[in-house]
Nucleic acid binder design. Structure first.
Ligand SMILES: [Mn+2]
Ligand SMILES: [Mn+2]
Ligand SMILES: [Zn+2]
Ligand SMILES: [Zn+2]
Lengths: 155, 155
DNA sequence: TGTCAACTAACAATCATTGGTGATACCTTG
DNA sequence: CAAGGTATCACCAATGATTGTTAGTTGACA
């Protein structure tokens, strides 16, 4: 996604108003590689604006998605994750324990389908999701007894 | 998954009882390649047993998943899809319009990650989801602007 | 400065799924 | 076959993430 300043221009030119809470969300998303959920954006935003409502978070994330500035991901963790990185196509690593999501910048060269394998489908995107254990949860699992916090905000 | 008869033995040997409704579900899943949701299994089951409850469907699908006889998939259509094919590893084609899911029997040879790309993750499974248009929806889309009845939420 | 979108708070509704009742049916083992 | 215990059913409630609604207030910006 673009910089908060560029988003300000974009929002205005698309008939939207630029409020303090929206700019707060712009700033929070800027450079965030954790693929945050609406909920976790809300928590982070509340540190700067105590009264910001979850509704506003959803609203703004929806707007940003509509404008193509961020991507809404469903990686099977139960909540929609938002990805500010829409510039370079990439895939994802998803931790099966804590649900943390990391970018996978590898491009797979040989993912085209053999003739006839598409079954008449008109192919669009191909998304690859690697599931496994993040460094933290791997440590916790191998160290014994301490299971990772189920759903939450990984470091 | 195994045949209904084999599942009957398996259920008994795992301390579960084999009821008429469970056998009905076994039969329905047998050879079903549509990756049905709990809801659609219920609809199909009601044709044979009018009073079978959705609760029972969920219960039995859960049991089958627990036993590893079927797989529970989240392909982003809003409902869990169940896959009786757990024998050969495969990927999936998902229609962006109607949510239909088809198997993709292609094995991608070069999906291992370059050294260092795993970021400390302990890799488990790699699932590939191709999104596009199924034959039916492709026809409907190119012919006119009225798509088929959406079965799931549009991605 | 005035207008209208955006915000908040509080609440209801959605949708897939799971969890509780009791009451009844019926599978399985002895 | 009979007993005991699980499964099922109908009904209804509770999740949890998300969206909608209302009403009153703030604030962006032309
Ligand atoms: Mn990403
Ligand atoms: Mn499949
Ligand atoms: Zn983890
Ligand atoms: Zn389709």
């Amino acid at each position: 996604m673009r910089t908060p300043d560029e988003l300000t221009v974009l929002f205005r030119s698309s008939g939207r108003k630029v409020t303090a809470q929206r700019q707060c969300i712009f700033r929070l998303l800027q450079g965030d590689e954790t693929h945050p959920s609406a909920e976790s954006v809300h928590v982070a935003a509340q540190l700067e604006m105590e009264t910001i409502s979850l509704k506003t978070i959803y609203q703004t994330l929806h707007d940003l998605t509509e404008l193509g500035e961020i991507a809404a991901l469903d990686v099977g963790t139960g909540r929609t994750r938002f990805d500010p990185n829409v510039e370079d196509p990439h895939h994802h690593l998803v931790c099966q324990v804590c649900g943390s999501v990391r970018d996978l910048v590898v491009d797979f060269p040989d993912m085209s389908l053999p003739a006839g394998a598409d079954l008449g489908f008109e192919l669009g995107t191909a998304e690859v999701i690697f599931r496994g254990l993040c460094p933290d949860c791997r440590k916790a699992t191998s160290a014994r007894s301490s299971p990772g916090v189920p759903v939450g905000r990984p470091a």
